[in-house]
């Protein structure tokens, strides 16, 4: 009897390309974290790795609390979130119109695409010295690092999203009497918007990955600065707690985007 039930549960979980109930997905997601923390704990508690290199998860959790109680970590978080969102906003307001134009007018795409591809493959950390020379050691260079890390990726993604709008939609627009501008506003943008929002979510994640790079140069605030300065004193639990903080913010932002996507584009559900 039990064997049959377990067998059914197991086959449901491993059903080929089948959706799972939302609750099951949440439980499995939480299980992934529990599994990761357990393996981490077992390794750390075994003593094979020294705690300066791998503290126990509980030590990281305690350090996480200490960051808030002994340092003004909440302010650092606000500063970092502000930097990431500001840089991301600047990327979006330039990348979306430019991406739309690139995919609509082939000549613009032909001029910009090779150049953007070239910049896109340059490692952002390698550009930091140059950006500091150009923008100084203040906020501008930090925003520039984050912007550089996201803008050149986002513009190509937006151009791709727009290119994928079915030609029949555009031709329908023409034969229904729409002008090019109306086709752009009333057909291309709504058609490309769901994948665009999805790509915004992904590039915002990339923006967070460049935060440490942006905040290690002459910074005196932000999560990256906290992590980098505590590294000097080998405060590994605090360093890891800082990393965990970025992970939590990233996860929450990602979930917020997913929720908004599901609400805004509910028509995509079958």
């Amino acid at each position: 009897m039990h064997a049959a039930i377990y067998g059914r549960v197991f086959s449901n979980l491993l059903a080929f390309r089948k959706a799972l109930p939302r609750r099951t997905e949440i439980i499995l997601g939480a299980l992934g974290f529990v599994l990761f923390l357990s393996v981490w704990h077992i390794f750390a508690a075994s003593g094979t790795i020294r705690p300066e290199f791998l503290p126990k998860p509980i030590s990281v959790a305690q350090a996480f609390v200490r960051l808030f109680t002994e340092r003004d970590f909440a302010t650092d978080i606000v500063i970092s979130v502000g930097r990431v969102w500001f840089a991301f906003f600047l990327s979006v307001i330039v990348a979306i119109p430019l991406g739309l134009i690139m995919s609509t007018y082939r000549s613009v795409g032909a001029v910009l695409e090779p150049f953007i591809d070239f910049i896109r493959y340059l490692p952002v950390p390698a550009l930091v010295p140059l950006l500091v020379i150009w923008f100084g050691v203040g906020e501008a260079s930090k925003i520039a690092v984050l912007w550089t890390g996201t803008f050149f990726q986002l513009i190509l993604l937006v151009a791709d999203d727009t290119k994928r709008v079915p030609v029949e939609y555009i031709e329908s627009g023409h034969t229904l009497g729409a002008t090019n501008g109306q086709i752009m506003r009333h057909i291309i943008i709504p058609a490309a918007l769901p994948s665009m929002v999805d790509n915004l979510r992904i590039t915002l994640g990339w923006c967070w990955t460049y935060l440490i790079v942006a905040e290690i140069v002459a910074a005196n605030s932000g999560i990256g600065h906290v992590i980098w300065s505590l590294r000097r004193f080998v405060k590994t639990p605090e360093v890891m707690a800082g990393i965990v903080a970025i992970g939590i913010i990233g996860l929450l932002t990602d979930q917020a985007f997913r929720y908004a996507h599901a609400r805004l584009f509910s028509y995509l559900r079958r």
Binding site: E168, E171, S172, H174, T175, L176, I187, A191, L193, Y267
Partner: peptide
């Protein structure tokens, strides 16, 4: 010359707007 509202087209593939 060029498309306009005088000639409406129905395509083989589904061209209704999903949004």
């Amino acid at each position: 010359a060029g498309p306009d509202r005088r000639r409406g087209m129905v395509f083989q593939s589904y061209s209704s707007f999903p949004w």
